[in-house]
């Protein structure tokens, strides 16, 4: 691809076609995620929306952020961060779910009304 150009010796140059392809996919998925909210899927809606966001995010990370061609270690680094966030959110969710029953309903004396 970059054979015709004076590309750098130590990094990968992403072809324009790939960039445009990913761009198209992102645009399409954005419109899709917008459209899907007009269909009532019940509790599934949020997971569909998050699933689409995950696909979009993966595309951005792999192509726009060069993860596909870079050292795999960067992907490991990113995944470890996500794992960390997952642990944090997971435990906070698990715990707060457990003690909901102890809460005084709608306690918010600082809020008038």
């Amino acid at each position: 691809m970059s054979k015709h150009h004076e590309g750098p010796t130590y990094a990968h140059v992403v072809p324009v076609r790939t960039l445009l392809g990913v761009f198209g996919a992102l645009m399409f998925l954005t419109i899709l995620t917008y459209a899907v909210t007009y269909v009532d899927l019940g509790a599934l809606n949020i997971w569909v929306a998050l699933g689409i966001a995950l696909v979009k995010g993966t595309l951005v990370a792999l192509v726009f952020m060069h993860l596909l061609w870079d050292k795999k270690f960067y992907a490991v680094v990113l995944m470890s961060a996500l794992l960390c966030v997952m642990i944090f959110i997971g435990i906070a969710l698990l715990d707060s779910g457990q003690y909901q029953a102890d809460l005084i309903p709608d306690f918010a004396p600082g809020i008038v009304q």
């Binding site: 995620t33 998050l50 966001a53 979009k56």
Partner: peptide, 26 residues
């Protein structure tokens, strides 16, 4: 350019998740 690019894509990436979470709740 590459590094700012990475940063910019991450900012985009975060918005990709913020958008459905905040706006597209059913």
């Amino acid at each position: 350019v590459d590094f700012v690019g990475l940063y910019w894509h991450l900012v985009d990436l975060i918005w990709i998740f913020l958008f459905p979470l905040l706006y597209l709740i059913h």
